[in-house]
Structures are given as C-alpha cells and as structure tokens.
Simulated assay, not measured.
Amino acid sequence: MRYILSGGGTGGHIYPALAIISEIKKRNKDAEILYVGKKGSLEEELVTKEGIKFSPIEVKGLPRKKINKDTVVTLMALLKGLRQCEKIIKEFKPDVVIGTGGYVCAPILLKAQQKKILTVIQEQNAYPGKTNRILSKKADLVAVNFEEAKKYLKYKKMIVTGNPIRDDFNHVDREKARKSLGIKDKEKFVLSFGGSGGQESTNEAIIGILKGEYKRDFKLYHVTGKDHYQGFMKAIDGIDLENVNIVDYSNNVPELIMASDLVIASSSAMTLAEISAVGVANILIPKAYTAGNHQVYNANSYKDKKASYVILEEDLNSDMLYNNIEDILKDNKKREEMANNVLKLGNKNAVKNLVDGIELLINERTESKRKI
C-alpha cells in the first residue's frame, strides 16, 4: 500500500502526520510512504530527521489582505506546485493521500482529487483552516478533533477521532518525569510555552513576573521560542533565576507536561491534545493572529467544559497571569477538577481510530473495484 502525507507550516500540522505515519508502519512494515511539503521548511526538517522520504514542492499561502501583486506570485507558485504534484503522483502512484492542514497540502490533495485517488483530511481545530474547508468538500473522509468543527465543513463522510499525538505520551510516567527534572515531592512545577515558535505576549508576561515583586513559590520552566530567546535573556539580565529554567526550545515536551502541576500555553490543537492526553490543569493564552482566530475557538471549547482558564492576549499582563497561577496552584481541589475535565477531552486512541478509518476506506475502494 502506498501513502502520501502532507501538512506543514507549524508543528501542529506536522506532528499529527508523523503520528499517522508511525501507526501505519506499525500495522504494515511494507507500506510505502512519501511526505510532500515545502522545500526548506519545518516539515522537511522534522520529516527527514525521522528517515521518511520527502518530496519538496513550491507553494505559498494566499495573502489574507485584498488582492495585490503577492496574490499573483502565490497563484503562480500554486500552478507550479500542481505541476510538481502531477509528476509526484504519476511516479509514486499512491493509494491514498492524507492532508493534515496548512496551505502546503493543497496542491497534492487537489491533484489527487482530480485523479479520483482516495483523499483524507485531518482537521485539528474547532474552527477549520481555509485549506481544509475547501478540500473537505471532495475528500473521501474527514477526521476532526473537535465536534464543533463539523458545522464549518462540507463532507461525504466524517469521523471524530481526537488529534493524533506522538507515541511518547503513552510511555511517560509522572513520578519518573519529576525525578528526572529534579522536582521535589511537594514542589509545584509550572511549564510555560507558546508552541514551536514561542509566543511574544506570554514571554512579556513571564518577564514581568520574573522582574516584579512577586512571591514565586513554584518551580518555573519557560520555553521562549528560538527567535525570542536572546531578547528574553537580555530583558532579565541580572535577575535572580533560582528555581527557574529558561530555554529556547525543547524536544522533551511529553516529560515536561507529565511532570507539571500547571501548564501555561497557547491553544493550538496539538498542545490541547497533549495536555488532554496527560490531564493537567492549564491556562490557555490563544494567539490572536492565527488564521480564522482558530485558537480562540479551541480555547473557548475547553473553557466551556471547565477544563481551562483562558486569558486573551489583549487582556494579558503579568499581574493577571500571576494571579491565575496562584489561584490554581493554591487550590488543590480546583486543580484536580480541571485536570480531570481536561483528561475527559483527550483521546490516546485518536491515531488508531483515524488509521482504522483510512484502512476501512481503502478496503471499501478495493471491494468496489472487485465488483466492477
């Protein structure tokens, strides 16, 4: 069986694809897999690191403002990308093409749909992105993370699976994680991060807490994002960082989340799936500039189920963030209730359910061909 996967731009689109690939390989060691993405991108870096065959294409995202010269450049790139995908499909001959979102997957899915090849869309957010809203109409299967996403999509067949996450989350133990990170038994551990690229508003609020006259009776581990690290460290130069770890990036997110008493994070679908897999109290700070404001939709879905505190970026400041941290850490009952509520929203079997759906789709296509 031959599979093409595509999705990119952020880890939120790439990691679900990698989780799907891992599950396919577990079931079928002979499966042939090709990842299609943008040349020189994050998806190329992460995919090739996993030893997965990668085919680069040229593609650009549509400008969000009115039509201008950038629109023409984007359309020219799309046409070139479609020609490249025509060649990829002709040579690879996939049985199914799976897209996990981001504009990068548009050309390969469009071309596959034109050629009547099975296509699957995996949508992570409560408010679907533009690419998936368009492609879902002709997709053979749409898999969603949030029930709320259904009303924004047109589809032939849909399943609610949850968001596929890395298998690492099934092999992390809280006690071992805390011991590995040097966290004492009764010590409260707070993890703060803003996705793979960091979050400027959260960085500024954390800087204010570190520089201000706040009583920090908890251990803080903050991830700035690579582009923000130097500026962050310059801003806190000379500040006492006892019980504080500042890093630019971490590949150790499963262990960090498992060890946490509280997580402060943006509300990307991937982050929500990860904290839900563990079950941990959290403060969500949705990024205001995301397409369709989807992070606010994600965060409100969790807030409505009493699984998260939510602070909008426009309201965020050091006082508000610190007060929310203290409110959660000092109330064990509230923290436990929140952790239980968020755990109910998780689904560790998401990737298994999704690949079950893909296999059923392939079997149905094979059976229909036999009857003809």
Rank of each mutant, 00 (worst) to 15 (best):
N252E: 13
Y3R: 13
G182I: 05
A273R: 07
L220R: 09
E313G: 09
S22W: 01
G81Q: 10
K87R: 15
S180V: 00
N324L: 03
V190Q: 09
E337V: 06
P16W: 05
H13T: 00
S266E: 01
V223I: 15
E187P: 07
N282I: 01
P94I: 05
I275S: 04
N363F: 04
K352V: 14
K179H: 05
E274C: 05
K348V: 02
S368P: 00
P164T: 03
P254E: 02
G162P: 07
V190S: 09
V253K: 14
E43D: 11
A350W: 02
A273K: 07
N353R: 11
D315M: 07
I52G: 02
L46E: 01
K29R: 15
D185T: 08
G198T: 07
S22T: 08
S268A: 15
D70I: 00
L241W: 10
K93T: 09
V247F: 10
K184T: 01
N340T: 00
A143K: 00
P94K: 12
R2Y: 03
K333Y: 11
K130M: 13
G198H: 08
E44S: 06
F146N: 04
F218L: 11
I33M: 08
Y221S: 06
Y229L: 12
G346Y: 06
I209V: 12
L75D: 09
A277F: 01
I236D: 09
E43A: 02
I134L: 15
N163D: 05
E204T: 03
